[in-house]
């Protein structure tokens, strides 16, 4: 009983410490944002967004295909071809595009940023710059944070388009749905407003991804092995945060 109490006490403390650390990081980033280094933002967008683009395109296309193969099963059973476009579009816009874009980025960009920051600490760049009076938050952390968040939103929109195109191809090729019927079903049942919850989700996932990867990089031990540890920790934290946010936001939107 005592062991259980002390274990749960430790867990509560750990959670509180984690929440406190994120709050502190968020505060630092927000204060630094108005005067952040624009060039570093642009550089990170070009790395984060462009690097992850091919991966995002492939995952989006596969997801689009997958959604149709699955809905197609029910379409075949109940003979409602006219609903394929709506089903695929709804599932992709509301759920899969933001989820896939942010999961793809969490592997490629989140882990990369975490190990990069950990590497800058292990290589003494961050302490050296701090000692020279450089505001790390403005020069490095805030620009990277916003660059990651912006990349996720843009990639989610691209993923929407690519995944829907892939669904169309699979619906036509595999299920034999006429392209006109698919598009008509998308057109009739999906409005621009249907894209909004997905984009809001993508923005939330992007902020979580930025915060988790930077925090993992800052919290890792400042030595060579810490670099790998940072990448792994960032992956797990991001995955948990994205799924939890997904649950909360689906209820709200």
């Amino acid at each position: 009983m005592r062991a259980f109490l002390s274990a749960s006490g430790r867990l509560v403390l750990r959670v509180l410490r984690g929440v406190g650390a994120y709050a502190l990081l968020a505060g630092r980033l927000l204060i630094a944002t108005p005067r952040m280094d624009g060039r570093e933002w642009l550089r990170t967008v070009s790395i984060a967004g462009v690097d992850a683009l091919p991966l995002c395109l492939v995952t989006a296309a596969l997801t689009g295909a997958l959604v149709v193969i699955q809905t197609g099963f029910y379409v075949e059973s109940y003979g409602v071809t006219s609903l394929v476009g709506w089903g695929a579009g709804y599932a992709l816009f509301h759920e899969f595009a933001p989820l896939i874009a942010s999961l793809a980025l969490s592997g490629r960009v989140g882990a990369g940023q975490a190990s990069d920051i950990a590497g800058l600490r292990a290589g003494e760049q961050l302490p050296a710059l701090e000692a020279l009076g450089v505001d790390i938050d403005r020069a490095l952390l805030a620009p990277r944070f916003w660059a990651i968040a912006a990349s996720v939103v843009v990639l989610a929109v691209i993923a929407d388009v690519v995944a829907l195109s892939a669904s169309l191809l699979v619906a036509v090729g595999l299920l034999g749905v006429p392209p006109g019927a698919f598009l008509a079903s998308v057109h009739a049942s999906l409005r621009v407003a249907d894209a909004v919850p997905g984009i809001v989700k993508a923005a939330a996932f992007g902020l979580a991804l930025g915060a988790c990867s930077l925090r993992a990089g800052l919290a890792a031990p400042a030595e060579a092995r810490g670099v790998g540890a940072a990448a792994r920790r960032s992956l797990v934290a991001t995955l948990t945060a994205i799924l939890a946010l997904d649950m909360a936001l689906t209820g709200l939107l």
Partner: peptide, 17 residues
């Protein structure tokens, strides 16, 4: 950070970006 203005540091291995 303000107090470190006017102070320089050089570390082992340069630590450049």
């Amino acid at each position: 950070r303000a107090a470190r203005r006017g102070v320089g540091l050089v570390t082992q291995g340069a630590a450049l970006l």
